Structures are given as C-alpha cells and as structure tokens.
Computed example of a mutant assay.
Amino acid sequence: MKTLGFDKAPGDTRIVVAMSGGVDSSVTAALLHEAGYEVIGITLQLYDHGMAVERKGACCAGQDIYDARQVADSLGIPHYVLDYESRFRQSVIDEFADSYLNGETPIPCVRCNQTVKFRDLLQTASDLGADALATGHYVQRKEGDGGAEMHRAVDRSRDQSYFLFATTQEQLDFLRFPLGDLPKSETRALAERFSLPVAEKPDSQDICFVPNGSYARVVEKLRPGSVESGEIVDLDGQVLGQHNGIIHYTVGQRRGLGIGGAEGPLYVVRLEPETHRVVVGPKAALARDLVRVREANWLGPIPSGNEGMPVEVKLRSAQEPVQGRVHLSGTEDKARCEVWLDSPQYGVSPGQAAVFYRGDRVLGGGWIDATELRNVEAARQVA
C-alpha cells in the first residue's frame, strides 16, 4: 500500500472506511488497520432491509451488512450501520426511474458515489473527526502540483475512474483509495492472508436495487402506469412493429427488437419519449462525432479558447478512450461543454457519461445530454 500522504503518524490518524461487505472494502479496512491507522468502519443501508435480505450478487444487501460487521469484528475495529435509505431513494433511485422514462440510459452507481457516498458519507466521516474517507475503489489518487489528482488504476481491467468522474476536488482531497495500485488477484491474496470472512465472496455484479438486471421491472414498480407502449419505426417514420415501453431499449441495441431489416441488421438509433417511439436504422445511422455534455465536473485544466482542449474521452464504462477535443459551450458556464470526436463513434447514449483523460489522469467528465453527426463524409467512410 502506498503512503496516504498524511503529515502525522498513523496512530494519530483517524480514517473512516466505507465497508460494503465485499472483498475490496474489507481488504481496505484490513490494510489500514495493519498499518496502524485508527480505523472506523461504516456500512450504509440504502434500501428496504427486508428486500435487501433477498438480494444476492449486489452491494449493500442485508447479507452484506452482516458480512461487513463480521469483518470489522475480526479486525477489532468499530463498525456502524447508517440508514441512508431516504437519501438514496431521492438522490439515486428516483432519478434512475425518471431517466429511463426520458429515453436515457442512466448510471446510478455514479450518482450514488456523487451524492450518498462522496457527499453524505464524507460529511459523516468529517463529523467523526476523521482525517480521510477510504474506499475500495480501483483508482489512484496522486499528489500533483495543484493538489490531489485522480488517475486510472494500475490494473486497467479493474479501473473504476469512469464511475468517479463526478468527484469534486474538495472530495478528492479528503478521499483515499488504498487498492488503486493493486491487481485484483493481490487483493484476493490479501483477504486470505488477513483471514477475512469474505475472502472467497464473489464480486457484486448487479446494480444494488435492480434484481437480476431487470431495469424495466424496477422502473415499472417505481412509476406504475407511466410505461406506455408505442411504435418501432425506421428513419423515415415507417412503422415496423410495436413495443411495450421505451424503457426496454437503449441506443445501439441490436438484439431483442423483434424485427428484421431487409438490407441487414437494425439498431436502436434514438428513443423519442414524447411520441413513445423507438427509431431504428442501420449501424451507419448510429455514427456520432459531436457529444453535448451537461453537469461537467473538472479535476484538471478547463478548456479555453476556440481550439478546445485535446483529450481522450471514454463514452461507456467498457469502452476504451477515443481521441477528441473538449470545448466549453459558453465562457461563463463551465458545467456545459461539447466533445468533438476525431472519428465517429457508434451507440453513444444520452444518460451515460463522457469522461475525459490525459494519459492515466482523469481531467473530469459529465453526463451525455445529446449527440450529433457533424462530419457525414467521415461516417460514410468508416461505415
């Protein structure tokens, strides 16, 4: 574990660890405890405890709260469970449902980090007199000339920086990520060495409040009567079929459309919540090279001038960054910007995030609001 950058001895340093009950956060607590820090474990109950007991394979479920307590007991550190259910509902779940109904593809884990964990929990850690809040995220925090910087994890296959783009500079100053320079295999080995009760526990896969990955079912339950059926149409407006709600579709989707194209496969090109229409077309129709971004958060230099700022931009969590330039939409509004991509990309979906990098460093990011195609000729050549 790299130094955490404190100017006092570990024994005089109090660190709150966000303990989800999984292997990563448990190893984080164990490493800090072994290093001599005063460690306090906190676990969040984020939704109905009765429902949580039935949930498997996701964080913050009833079993996970129990597991976090078992780990804390094995380490001999204090452990507290905080009821953040109402905050989580307002800040994460409600927005998730509304975003799907608006034809977007949201990322609730980002909102959870942005609000409940890195705002509310961070404030709680500060109220407890902690010097830092530590988490089990795979991302690196490095000291730069202008303060703390966020960098991608050493293990690129585990890197979670995309989900942390909304972390503010003030939050990053207070946060610590002890696992950022470790491969997952070493984390597992450490769990065995510490004899943690969760050493062989599988990683969480699902969004914590979405059973079996069924997003549509959750939205229907949260917003009863709001899901309306409609038409599946081609780019010319010709009706090709019917659907049971746009919440079942996302931009770039090919499978599960229930229709076929005479000249090749069809993809979801856009969703129209006002008319309840799903618009489909060939892959070429997905090409986009202009991405409009809202709620931009900056952890590095901010674009200036007409030329914009060269960046590598990640448009989906599983996608590698691509080259582009970021321009502010207005000189006074730093929360809105445009990304001009060097080459067209396909399946860029509103509601996802655009995260900006320079090498391994995270410069910032924001939410994708809309997309366009500027260079039609380039898109034809790629297609």
Rank of each mutant, 00 (worst) to 15 (best):
Q169T: 08
W367L: 14
E372I: 01
E85I: 02
H276Y: 13
A335G: 10
G62T: 08
Q140M: 12
D64N: 04
G245Q: 07
Q352G: 05
Q90F: 09
V326R: 05
H49A: 14
L222Y: 11
R193I: 05
Q169L: 06
K184L: 05
G237V: 03
D234Y: 07
L299W: 02
A148H: 08
K283V: 02
D236L: 10
E95H: 15
I77V: 15
Y47L: 06
R156P: 06
S25F: 04
P108C: 10
L315E: 01
N212I: 13
E320D: 14
G76L: 08
E170S: 14
Q45F: 09
A262V: 13
E186T: 15
L164Q: 04
P106A: 12
D73C: 09
A191L: 01
L133Y: 11
S161P: 08
T167M: 04
G364M: 08
K221I: 03
V210M: 06
E200K: 14
D342V: 05
D203R: 11
V27W: 05
V268I: 13
F174T: 10
A296P: 03
S91G: 05
V382R: 15
Y37Q: 09
S126H: 11
E272A: 09
Q345C: 04
S195K: 15
L363I: 14
Y84S: 07
D181L: 06
N102T: 07
P224E: 07
G365Q: 02
A191K: 02
M51E: 14
H243W: 04
W298K: 13
Q345G: 03
E272L: 07
H137V: 01
A58G: 11
G364Y: 03
V339S: 08
T135H: 11
S349K: 09
R254S: 13
S99W: 07
L299Q: 08
V27Q: 10
G230W: 00
S161H: 09
P197Q: 03
V269I: 14
M150L: 15
H49G: 12
S329W: 00
Y84G: 08
D120Y: 13
E272H: 03
L46N: 09
V278Y: 06
I77N: 11
F6E: 01
T135S: 15
Q63L: 10
T187I: 15
V27K: 08
A72V: 10
A72W: 02
R294F: 00
G230A: 04
P106E: 13
G41A: 14
Y84V: 00
Y37L: 12
S226A: 15
L363N: 07
